[in-house]
Nucleic acid binder design. Structure first.
Lengths: 126, 126
DNA sequence: GTTTTTTTGAGAATGAATTCGCAATAAGAA
DNA sequence: TTCTTATTGCGAATTCATTCTCAAAAAAAC
């Protein structure tokens, strides 16, 4: 049966744990490479996929076509996507009155709020 | 120079105009086909792309990886994505206090709120 | 340390959306 | 109507994220 603790899995977990926002597979690869050199993209996808299926990670799709992964047990929050560097950041949940304007007979099960603009770093270096 | 009015372009415009939410290229194709039989997906993509570049249409990416197109001059609104039929619907803008919880020094230029769940039709036929 | 079995790395393979190439077609000008 | 040239349809080609294959590497069991 599966489940063996490896250097690469630990690296991926660590990276996702200290992340300030959901990460793409490539971002995870880059960050995890610092700790576990040689780790491959395939491994990142494999691990991330397994954990997403087990419910440990959640997948989000912001205003582009890439999947980003984040720990599933975080408090409810929303995202900010920098249009310059394409990094995503968690932001405190703005408001929860969101659900109130839904058309009648529409059943809302979840929502995602994405703000976009320029992050600190990108606003600075301009 | 470009810009020639054709049956297919008119069909695409009409479809997007009466849409109740952003449409994917395939949805546009299906709907436009009723008016302009034989229209091809390539044409849909060509037209939609040109208009998006000219600013007449805006492209949105909701909770999946497909691009959806909508007229750019609509009032500010948000979206509802049915997880059963994958159709997107416009919804009246819930709140505008959204921008207030952004981290310092982050420059917000826009936002997107996506609610998901089940649309009327899908809630009914279950 | 040895064995067994999962996990990994590399790269090929997929899948799906979107774009291209080009001959045939059709707008709009003349 | 005729001519010129943008536009279309079709299928091939591309792009990119993600998955798969399989031999080599490395956990955990022994």
């Amino acid at each position: 049966m599966p489940k063996r603790s490896t250097r690469q899995k630990r690296a991926i977990h660590a990276v996702l744990h200290k992340a300030v926002g959901p990460l793409t597979a490539n971002e995870i690869l880059d960050l995890a490479s610092e700790v576990s050199p040689g780790i491959s993209l395939a491994t990142v996808y494999r691990v991330v996929r397994a954990e997403a299926e087990s419910g440990a990670l959640s997948v989000v799709h912001l205003d582009d076509k890439v999947s980003r992964y984040e720990e599933a047990d975080r408090h409810h929050h929303h995202h900010f996507l920098c249009q310059r560097c394409d990094r995503a950041f968690d932001i405190a949940t703005p408001c929860d009155l969101v659900a109130s304007y839904v058309p009648d007979n529409f059943e809302v099960t979840g929502h995602e709020i994405t703000l976009y603009g320029h992050c600190v770093d990108c606003s600075a270096s301009l």
